[in-house]
Amino acid sequence: MEQVIFYIFAAVLLFAGAMVITVRNPVHAALFLVLAFFNAAILWVLAGAEFLGIALVVIYVGAVMVLFLFVLMMLDINVAPLREGFARYLPVGALVAALMAAQLGGVILAEQAGLTGGMIPAPSGETNNIQVLGALLYTAYVYPFEIAGAILLVAIVAAIALTLRPVQRGRYQRIGEQLATSKRERLRIVKMKPRGGGAEQ
């Protein structure tokens, strides 16, 4: 039963992955990528890594791809020039694909080559894998974890610094002043003397 489910979602994943690179419309391609992420998350949950699976949905589907789509929808992309030069880029693409295939093969064959030093022990039945993951990240792997955090922080600061423009002179909102205003500054009550005999009478 579980195998049948696995093959169904794996087939959808492969289909979505193929569509990402073949479909014409960039927005459709991004949506197929979302589908691919979602199916990958399902496969991870099936494999017992529910934390990683749901985190993939939260981070990639829920945030990264939304921003991607956001940008794609703002651009008026002309599809034809994007499809030029397929033959020119093919060698580089093939090289990258070969490298990735080699890495995948390395992971799969690592066990046979005796490279099992870094393998994490499977969680025992009593604790769930979120607790195991949390405990391992903050004890055995605390330095890699902190270093990854520092690298991400540097990347965030760099991204903000790159896009930060000098403050424009002229119009901008001074929120503090807006909040500090009182009724006396903004509202003036005028007493009008009623005129005798208006037009509406």
Binding site: V34, F51, I54, A55, V57, V58, I130
Partner: peptide
């Protein structure tokens, strides 16, 4: 009643934007 219930809720509410 899954272990990662809170995370699942966060994931589902973040999908609504699509």
């Amino acid at each position: 009643d899954i272990n990662a219930g809170l995370l699942y809720i966060l994931a589902m509410t973040s999908l609504g934007v699509y």
